[in-house]
């Protein structure tokens, strides 16, 4: 067990060193993928299937976005000239990094050794499962005990997406007499017919699986965040295989932004409803009956929260991808 983890960490270290020193940016990005996928296996070994599911999808989407960014750019990194200043800089950076490592290593001796962790806060959470009615304790923590944190995280996600959309907007288009640089394109290019047809079969199934993971978040590994990422991957899959037309992408982006905003607003509304309806004046109070642990209709507001967060995450990640694609298309056109 510990040996496997050491092997995985060694693989991660090798992959990260190679990706930072690769000459070509594409091979740097691909070997960065090693780090993420080794992390997935480590999560499985460490009894964290929720994290493994979400990490494997997030890693794939990250790689797609990174490769989309570096296509049509200069892949090669410039070779460094070894001047006196560069050598001095490298030596001082190595010294700084070594000192940082030595300071951090002190913590390894202070902490409990691996596997001997003593839970304190989590004991209360595990003990009061009946209060949430959620068989998956992690989902119970996310949407009941730490729901306020989750609201904050959803807001950070929303803000990051707004930031991406603002940065990638073309200012020239807003000028009144600007020439529209739309490519006159009626048929999407996409990939070959085989890929398109298979994708049309697969994308709904992937989407359905994402919805299943989100709805069953309180019973099995998964939840709103995981399901949302899987649903977004179905969108991205469809766009990549089927190709896209710029006008349709703009409409799609508008719809995605709308559904994201509505989702985060309804999450806030759910919290306020708890404050108004429940007798205890608590933000995010669970005002519905919790039911029996292990049934689909149980957990009060937790499944509703899962669905809302699923829609929000799906719309957020899809709109990041669509914004990037629109930017690339307009640049080419």
């Amino acid at each position: 067990m510990e040996l496997y983890l050491i092997i995985m960490l060694a693989l991660m270290i090798l992959g990260s060193i190679y990706s930072l020193h690769a000459k070509d940016l594409l091979s740097a990005v691909v070997s960065y993928g090693i780090v993420g996928f080794a992390l997935v296996i480590s999560f499985l070994l460490l009894q964290a299937p929720d994290l493994a599911i979400v990490q494997v999808v997030v890693e794939i989407i990250t790689l797609i976005i990174m490769i989309a960014v570096i296509t049509n750019t200069t892949h090669e990194t410039e070779s460094k000239k070894l001047g006196l200043g560069a050598i001095f800089y490298s030596v001082s950076v190595l010294l700084f990094v070594t000192v940082a490592l030595l300071f951090m290593s002190r913590f390894a001796f202070v902490l409990n050794s691996f596997g001997q962790h003593v839970t304190r806060m989590a004991d209360n959470y595990v003990g009061s499962v009946a209060e949430t009615g959620s068989a998956n304790i992690i989902t119970g923590i996310i949407f009941h005990f730490r729901a306020y944190d989750t609201l904050g995280e959803a807001t950070v996600l929303f803000t990051a997406v707004i930031g991406v959309i603002c940065i990638l907007r073309h200012e020239e288009l807003k000028a009144p007499d600007a020439v529209k640089i739309d490519v006159i394109q009626t048929m999407p290019k996409g990939m070959t017919l085989v890929v398109k047809n298979i994708c049309q079969f697969l994308a709904p199934v992937i989407f359905l699986f994402g919805a299943y993971v989100a709805i069953h978040g309180h019973l099995s590994p998964g939840g709103g965040f995981t399901g949302g990422v899987i649903m977004a991957s179905a969108f991205i899959f469809q766009i990549l295989a089927g190709g896209s037309v710029l006008d349709k992408l703009r409409k799609e982006k508008w719809r995605l932004e709308l559904s994201e905003s509505v989702a985060i607003f309804s999450f806030l509304l759910l919290a306020v409803l708890g404050l108004l309806i429940a007798s205890a004046l608590v933000f995010f109070a669970n005002f519905l009956p919790t039911g029996n642990i292990g049934e689909l209709v149980s957990g009060g507001i937790i499944p509703i929260g899962n669905v809302i967060i699923g829609i929000e995450v799906c719309a957020a990640i899809s709109s990041i991808f669509v914004a990037l694609l629109i930017y690339k298309d307009e640049e080419l056109g």
């Binding site: 964290a48 929720d50 994290l51 979400v54 990490q55 997030v58 989407i61 990250t62 839970t119 806060m121 989590a122 959470y125 595990v126 304790i137 992690i138 923590i141 996310i142 730490r146 944190d149 989750t150 995280e153 950070v156 996600l157 990051a160 997406v161 991406v164 939840g223 965040f225 995981t226 949302g228 990422v229 995450v313 957020a316 990640i317 990041i320």
Partner: peptide, 16 residues
């Protein structure tokens, strides 16, 4: 379960 719950959201935020 507490670190797992906190990290689950952090991974998705990390992507954004």
């Amino acid at each position: 379960p507490l670190p797992q719950a906190m990290i689950l959201t952090a991974i998705v935020i990390g992507l954004a």
